[in-house]
Design a protein around this nucleic acid. Structure first.
Length: 810
DNA sequence: GTCCTTTCCG
């Protein structure tokens, strides 16, 4: 019905009209007196609440011949614009023969408020060609559109035109200019224009204050609130709403509370946007309870209030309460927006609750948010955090209008799920598609490179960071330090670390841990002492790194001292992993009884990391009794982990307790556990070569085995004795053969064949390096005069001149 | 009639 009227009144395009006659005739002006109809009809039109009703009136207007009325024409354009029907508005506009200035102005407003900026500017140019004099609000509307679209170039053009028309000291126009610069992230220009204003009203002050707040210059925003008061302007509700996010930004509870007091005294607290901003401020300042109190006391809430509260819980890690509130919001019939959905997804991601996440996913599709890119990006992050990168990838693949954030979310998702190669290839793909990576991209992809441990690509990404001017970004640099350390370049890592002007606590932790995993315990301790003297305070992770460094280097006394100092000097309460590190420290050093005693005296129930460390130590020092105790606790705590079973089996093997070995095997079979096959990787030129124990699939297999045979003879002559006690049931020569096909030996032989003398060889092994391979590698480094760096599951081994950096301590 | 305002993905 409505659509028939629509087409009968205004054809969608001139050619759409089948009739030779125009669908309506403009009646001659003389027939009807203007004042008879203009006023009441205009009022009637005003009553239309949507475009459907408006269309119903149209035949009446035409019938009564009042379309010629300027007031009616303007009203029609205005209403169509307000209902978002810019096309209809334009058609009305085009129909009018003698257009008054106001009609132009209304049409321009319609363009500015509805359409893309370009249409508005084009119309503005046409208006000028028609000799219509611009008025101030032509500029204010257009400038606002520039700000909303972050169109600085257009904004500047309008700014200069505005001055040419003599509006340079008009307070409305100049406030719009200030706002435009602020929205285009040119806050300094905004400030200059603000300073140049001959007079400033409250709105102008609010514009510059919100400008500072939105540009992350919270302190300036707060300063300006004080300044405006010195100039006799009283902050209104909009001032408060603008400045409260700034309080949250600097975490200034003192000022936040003062503003709260002011709001109460001025009666602004009753306004929904003010109380919502207060909720947000308290939540961001860490007072989630107070935020909730303010929220619960609000008599009127809007969806933003709910969103602020939900996100407040999500941000502070209380995902349970965030989800509870989200459900409550739905129960109360408040329609969620994209922001609500993102808050809920954030909570699901944090708690790893895939089930709930799926429900939110269904809900967002139902309410039509399936094409909101931000929401979809959150969804990608949620599925990744819930360990379902496959689903995330599917969503990413189908997502139209991917933004940089989408790419970053997916790359991070792969990286966090151990799919480093996928992360890397996606990073390459985005560049082929000319999506320019930013610091977030690098921070996501660098750990993936660190994981693959390929120094060449690591250096390449470092170069990339430099070219992209991201090499002064503290997060990127910290990731690079970590990456170099993990790629075996611990000294390069330190050089980078020293070059940084600013370091976060994470930066220090990364470097200390880098030294630790390379077995440079003394360096780690030295760096930690340096950190203690610096303004950066160590945190719980710092102590984990230091304790682990001490443990890897056998610095028992230092480790013990730091464990005490952690609580005494820094007030950091040890958690499970700290206890685990201590057990590791004592256990590796052979003080197994002491370690067991330490476990028994722990103030908290010992967990996996504690018994895991104990079991590992028992393997190194062949303590069957304590090893069994630790292992059986682990089987209860983590029944599906094959690694602990294998460790216990290896302890039995080393003691030739074959019946017990068989018992553990049966246990594993019953539980359906499989031993992870050992494999080693080595990079040559741009390729990564993978070797499994006994593998014969490599094209150079024959050469590799021949090389290995020759090598074994050579190192035997130098004193190497194979450690065969972990193999059973076969003759000694077969045992040796089995040992000699271990993946790390194959990789080393391959490396020796394919690199020139003197080159360092880098190997990566997925499990712990075995005792015999460790011994053999020491001898190989001696007889070939090569440095061999092996990164295993836990640490680095630098083999050189017959010795290893771990001092046989791993 | 025109200028300023709250929640937001990695």
């Amino acid at each position: 019905m409505a659509s028939t009227l629509k087409t009968s009144f205004i054809p969608l395009s001139p050619s759409c009209s089948p009739s030779p006659k125009p669908p309506f005739q403009l009646p001659s002006k003389t027939l009807i007196s203007p004042h008879l109809f203009s006023h009441p009809s205009s009022l009637l039109l005003e009553l239309c609440s949507d475009q459907r009703e408006l269309h119903r009136f149209l035949p009446l207007i035409i019938k009564n011949g009042i379309f010629t009325e300027h007031v009616i024409q303007t009203k029609l354009v205005s209403l169509f614009s307000r209902f978002g029907q810019l096309r209809q508005a334009t058609l009305v506009f085009d129909r009018v023969e003698s257009k008054i200035d106001e009609l132009y102005h209304t049409m321009l407003k319609g363009h500015a408020k509805n359409s893309i900026l370009e249409d508005g500017l084009l119309f503005f140019a046409q208006m000028r060609l028609a000799d219509v004099r611009p008025v101030v609000y032509n500029f204010t509307y257009l400038l606002k559109t520039c700000g909303d679209n972050v169109e600085l170039r257009r904004g500047k053009e309008l700014h200069s035109q505005l001055i040419a028309h003599g509006f340079g000291s008009n307070v409305f126009a100049m406030t719009a200019v200030v706002n435009m610069y602020a929205k285009c992230r040119h806050i300094e220009d905004a400030r200059r224009m603000f300073d140049r204003m001959p007079e400033r009203d409250l709105v102008a002050w609010n514009a510059i204050i919100s400008g500072y707040a939105q540009n992350g210059l919270a302190k300036r925003a707060l300063e300006f609130v004080f300044m405006m008061q010195r100039e006799g302007k009283r902050p209104d509700s909009i001032t408060l709403v603008s400045v409260l996010p700034a309080c949250a930004d600097v975490g200034s509870l003192r000022i936040g509370r003062a503003i709260h007091g002011y709001a109460v005294r001025a009666g602004f607290e009753l306004l929904v946007n003010v109380s919502t901003a207060l909720v947000d401020m308290y939540a961001k300042c860490g007072l989630i309870g107070i935020a909730r109190l303010v929220f619960d006391r609000m008599r009127v809430k809007n969806v933003v209030s709910w969103n602020s509260m939900i996100d407040g819980y999500a941000q502070c890690g209380d995902s349970g309460e965030a989800m509870a509130l989200f459900r409550k919001m739905l129960d109360e019939g408040v329609k969620p927006t994209g922001v609500s959905i993102m808050g809920a997804l954030h909570a699901c991601a944090d708690s790893g609750d895939l089930e709930q996440g799926r429900h939110v996913h269904e809900l967002l599709l139902r309410i039509g948010l399936g094409s909101d890119v931000s929401v979809m990006n959150s969804l990608i992050a949620m599925y990744s955090k819930c360990k379902r990168p496959d689903i995330a990838a599917e969503i990413f693949g189908n997502l139209s209008g991917k933004t940089l954030v989408s790419w970053n979310a997916m790359i991070l998702g792969y990286a966090q799920n151990g799919r480093s190669n996928d992360a890397l290839s996606l990073f390459c793909k985005m560049q082929r598609l000319n999506v320019k990576p930013d610091s977030f991209t690098l921070v996501s992809v660098i750990p993936a490179l660190a994981d693959i441990s390929v120094l060449r690509q690591g250096k390449w990404i470092h170069g990339y960071a430099i070219r992209a001017c991201l090499d002064r970004n503290i997060f990127v640099m910290t990731a690079l330090v970590d990456m170099y350390a993990k790629c075996g370049g611990v000294h390069i890592a330190r050089k980078l670390f020293d070059m940084m002007d600013e370091r976060h606590v994470t930066t220090w932790n990364t470097m200390i841990d880098g030294y630790g995993t390379h077995g440079f315990g003394e360096e780690a301790v030295k760096l930690f002492e340096e950190m203690r003297r610096s303004p950066i305070k160590p945190n719980d992770v710092t102590f984990l790194c230091v304790l682990s460094a001490c443990s890897h280097s056998g610095l028992v006394d230092e480790g013990r001292r730091y464990f005490v100092s952690m609580k005494q000097d820094y007030g950091i309460e040890p958690v499970m992993d700290h206890y685990g590190s201590m057990v590791d420290l004592l256990g590796r050093a052979g003080r197994l009884d002491e370690a067991w005693d330490f476990i028994r005296k722990m103030p908290i129930e010992p967990g996996i990391s504690v018994f895991g460390a104990m079991l590992g130590a028992c393997k190194i020092h062949q303590n069957i009794e304590l090893g069994e105790k630790a292992a059986y606790r682990l089987f209860e705590l983590e029944p599906d982990d094959a690694g602990y079973h294998v460790l216990l089996a290896n302890i039995y093997k080393a003691a030739s307790m074959w019946e017990d070995v068989a018992k553990v095997r049966t246990m594993m079979e019953k539980r359906g556990l499989k031993k992870t096959p050992g494999c080693s990787f080595i990079e040559l030129k741009n390729e990564v070569h993978t070797f499994y124990s006994g593998s014969t699939s490599h094209p150079q297999t024959k050469m590799i085995y021949a090389k290995l045979e020759a090598l074994v003879d050579e190192i035997k002559a130098a004193g190497y004795v194979p450690i065969t006690n972990s193999i059973h049931d076969v003759e000694d020569d077969v045992k040796e053969k089995l040992l000699n096909t271990h993946s790390e030996k194959l990789a080393i032989a391959f490396g020796l064949i394919n690199t020139s003398p003197g080159t360092t060889i880098q190997i990566r092994k997925n499990l712990r390096v075995c005792g015999d391979c460790h011994d053999a590698t020491k001898f190989i480094s001696l007889v070939t005069d090569r440095e061999i760096i092996v990164r295993d599951m836990h640490r680095f081994h630098h083999f050189k001149g017959g010795l290893c950096s771990c001092n046989d301590y791993w």
